[in-house]
Amino acid sequence: MPLSAIRTVAKPQNGVGAFILQCRKLEFHYCDWAGSSRGMNAFIKSSLPSFAKRNPQIEISVSPRPRRHPVIRAHYINGNQRAICVRNLTNEGVREKAELLRDASGEKNKRVNKPVTSINESVRGIWSPFHGAKIQI
C-alpha cells in the first residue's frame, strides 16, 4: 500500500455549529424554617417558574434541606458540580447566582493570559528565516 491513513476523532467546537449549554441540571435546596433562606424561598415562589421557562435546556429540581443554609448546586455536562450557598441573599441575588451557574462552563477557573487560543493554524504561516529576499546559496 503506497498510502495508509491515521484514524482520529474530529474535535468538538461548541458554538461553531450548534451550541449546547454546558449546565445540565440545577438543584435548589431551601429550608422553610431558617431565616437565611428567606430570599431563596421568595425566588422559588416568584421567579423560578419564569427562570425555568426561559431555560428549558436545564433540568431543575427543588428539594428541602431542613435546618441548613440554602444552596444552588449545578451539574455540568463534563461531569463537574458547582455549588453556591445563597444564605441571606435576596430574591434578586439568588437569581444572579443561578444565572452565574447557568452560564458557567463547568471547567475549573483558569487564568487566561494569551489573547487568542485557536485550533486552527495561523493564516500567515510561521515565520521562516530561509524565505526572504536576502537568501543566497
Binding site: P2, S4, I6, A18
Partner: peptide, 26 residues
C-alpha cells in the same frame, strides 16, 4: 441541518490523516 450543526461543524484537519510510505515514488 442538524447533521451540519452537530457533526460537520466539528474540527477535522484532513491533511493530518495522510500516512505516506514512499511519497517520492508516488
Amino acid at each position: 441541518r442538524f447533521f451540519r450543526d452537530h457533526f460537520l461543524s466539528r474540527h477535522l484537519d484532513i491533511s493530518t490523516l495522510f500516512d505516506f510510505r514512499t511519497p517520492t515514488r508516488d
